[in-house]
């Protein structure tokens, strides 16, 4: 099995989808001639040219709205936000136009778009560049939201996102772009390509005593925590990677909780209305009799992102914090 970085896996997904469908095109700030601010789109402009891989000015409301409008005519734009944090200046286009035009038109219109880019804190760039908007986005029916943790998932989910006929908000992570994972070559796959459906969670580590539900980089945090829990405390933690926030694979969560009877939701959202809050609400309702302990959440500490590197490091969930919380209920 070959090793591929998260960014290479995304690039492969774009390259394959650009080849598959002439309506697919990439646009965003510095995605073409600059090769991508984070080099995710490196080489694609050289290969595909101006029409398919297009630089835009720094004008998020303008070019996101333009992509939404073009999608109504059947173009399938994949639009990069250099940071997902910049969603704030394109909010009306994303929510009111991409997210609601189908509903308000009584189903006459759909927007097959992907908006993508890194959505993480932890890189010492201050609060304005450190948003994790998946919980905010998932608030809106009409939206789909995907947050892959590995290169394998990033490639397969991106291909599904591009093929989806609803607006998909695809959240990557600058701290994961360089991480390498096993990603099969298409020749090794039965169907000849890697497509992972939205709405299917993945059990990244099996366990029997405790369920850790997580997504994005928090999956890596939980895998480390699970290792510590096993090695130092003899506690077997199951790590459920949501991969897709909306649609959400509730069955995998419920089945895991019914097996382990304990749940901690770990994500890098702020706690109020986090993804973990939603899951806690669902689990207490549907798995009440299966629970042996209160559902806990581990989130980013509830203040804007701190700049100072050593402080920001502890603002996000760490394996140590997850272990400590686990020991409270195991």
């Amino acid at each position: 099995m070959r090793r591929l970085s998260y960014r290479q896996a995304l690039r492969e997904a774009f390259d394959e989808e650009l080849a598959r469908d002439p309506m697919v095109m990439l646009m965003g700030e510095e995605v073409a001639q600059y090769n991508g601010a984070y080099k995710v789109t490196e080489g694609l402009w050289t290969k595909w040219g101006d029409k398919r891989v297009m630089d835009t000015p720094i004008s998020e409301a303008g070019f996101i709205g333009m992509g939404v409008g073009a999608s109504m005519l059947g173009v399938r734009p994949v639009m990069e936000l250099m940071f997902w944090s910049f969603y704030t200046v394109a909010w009306d286009q994303i929510i009111n136009n991409a997210g609601m035009v189908r509903y308000m038109s009584g189903g006459l219109i759909n927007c097959p778009i992907v908006i993508r880019g890194p959505a993480n804190s932890g890189t010492n760039v201050g609060a304005t560049h450190s948003h994790t908007p998946e919980s905010v986005i998932a608030q809106f029916p009409g939206m789909k939201c995907v947050v892959p943790a590995t290169a394998y998932d990033a490639k397969g989910l991106m291909k599904a996102a591009i093929r989806d006929n609803d607006p998909v908000m695809f959240m990557e992570n600058t701290l994961l772009y360089g991480e390498e994972w096993d990603v099969p070559d298409n020749s090794e796959l039965p169907g000849g390509e890697l497509v992972i459906p939205l709405g299917v969670a993945d059990i990244k580590r099996e366990g029997s005593d405790l369920t850790l539900v997580c997504h994005g980089r928090a999956v890596l945090t939980c895998l480390k925590a699970a290792e510590i829990l096993q090695n130092e405390h003899g506690i077997s933690a199951e790590v459920v990677d949501l991969r897709s926030i909306r649609p959400l694979d509730e069955e995998t969560i419920f089945n895991s909780v019914r097996k382990t009877h304990r749940l901690i939701c770990v994500d890098e959202n702020k706690p109020f209305g986090s993804i973990g809050s939603q899951i806690a609400a669902m689990v207490q309702q549907h798995c009440f009799d299966d629970l042996d302990a209160p559902v806990l959440r581990v989130n980013s500490l509830d203040a804007p992102a701190f700049y100072s590197p050593p402080i920001e490091k502890i603002q996000n969930p760490t394996p140590e914090v997850v272990v400590a919380r686990a020991l409270e209920i195991c």
Binding site: K51, M66, G67, L73, Q93, N97
Partner: peptide, 16 residues
């Protein structure tokens, strides 16, 4: 809010 969408309709025409 409709003006970027209109721009996108024009973009779509040209793209196609």
């Amino acid at each position: 809010g409709q003006t970027p969408l209109g721009t996108g309709l024009a973009f779509g025409l040209k793209y196609k």
